[in-house]
Computed example of a mutant assay.
Amino acid sequence: MVRGIGDLAMSHAMNYKGYSGRVEFDPRDSIFVGRVLGIADSITFHGDTVASLTEAFHEAVDHYLADCASTGRDPHKPASGKLMLRIRPEVHAAVSIAAQAAGKSINQWADEVLEQAAHV
């Protein structure tokens, strides 16, 4: 399936080497501008076509990883796999019951539910 700029603009996200980028349209310059999400460092990229935007995103992530390697620092990972939540007690109880009913731990159940909700 061939994706056009409109398809990319609708999803607003790109993925490469475990990093995600959010894309928005800049009407002033008539380009798409992106930012890598989930890390403390600021990594941006831009392009006026899907191909140039994708290439710029890949180059930005590759440059970031190369810079980290050359300076001897660990690149920030998009996520550690640990998620701390504070939820209402009644929601916690309902989650516990739903997990038990599915024959799973709360962690297993939540992982599946969050994966589906995040469309991973």
Rank of each mutant, 00 (worst) to 15 (best):
A98N: 07
S70M: 03
N107I: 01
F57S: 09
G103F: 03
E55Q: 15
A79R: 08
E59S: 15
K104N: 02
D62T: 06
F57V: 09
E59L: 15
P78A: 11
C68D: 02
R86N: 13
I97Q: 14
R86E: 06
K77D: 05
S80A: 12
H76P: 03
A56R: 02
E90P: 07
H58S: 09
S105Y: 04
D74H: 12
G72E: 10
A79F: 11
S80P: 11
F57Y: 10
K104Y: 00
P89K: 11
E90T: 11
H76L: 09
L85G: 05
I97K: 10
I97E: 15
I87K: 06
D67E: 10
V95G: 04
W109A: 01
V91C: 04
L53G: 02
A98H: 08
A101K: 14
V95I: 14
S105E: 06
A99E: 03
K77F: 01
R73Q: 09
S70Q: 06
M84G: 06
H76F: 07
Y64W: 07
H63I: 04
P75W: 00
Q108G: 14
A94I: 00
A102K: 14
Y64I: 02
V95E: 01
I106G: 04
H76N: 11
P75T: 01
N107T: 10
A102R: 15
G103L: 08
I87W: 06
L65I: 03
T71Y: 11
I87A: 11
A99Y: 03
A66K: 14
D74A: 14
S70I: 00
E55W: 11
I97G: 07
A56C: 06
G81E: 08
A94Y: 01
R88F: 10
Q108P: 05
A60Y: 00
S105V: 03
A99Q: 09
S70K: 10
H58M: 10
S96A: 05
L53N: 08
A79N: 05
N107F: 09
L65E: 07
A56L: 07
Y64M: 12
V91D: 07
A101L: 13
T54D: 15
P89S: 10
A56I: 00
Q108C: 07
I97M: 14
R88N: 13
P75M: 01
V91S: 13
S70A: 03
A69Y: 03
L85S: 05
A56F: 02
A102F: 02
E90Q: 15
E55G: 15
A66Y: 01
P78N: 10
R73Y: 04
Y64C: 14
A98Y: 02
A69E: 08
C68R: 07
A101F: 05
H63F: 07
H58L: 01
F57Q: 03
A79M: 11
A56Y: 00
G81Q: 08
A56N: 02
T54I: 10
W109V: 00
Q108F: 08
T71L: 11
I106R: 14
S105H: 06
A98D: 08
L65K: 13
R86Y: 01
A56W: 00
K77R: 13
L83I: 00
K104I: 00
A93W: 04
L83F: 06
P78T: 14
A99N: 08
K104M: 14
A102Y: 03
Q100M: 08
A99R: 10
A56Q: 03
C68G: 08
F57K: 09
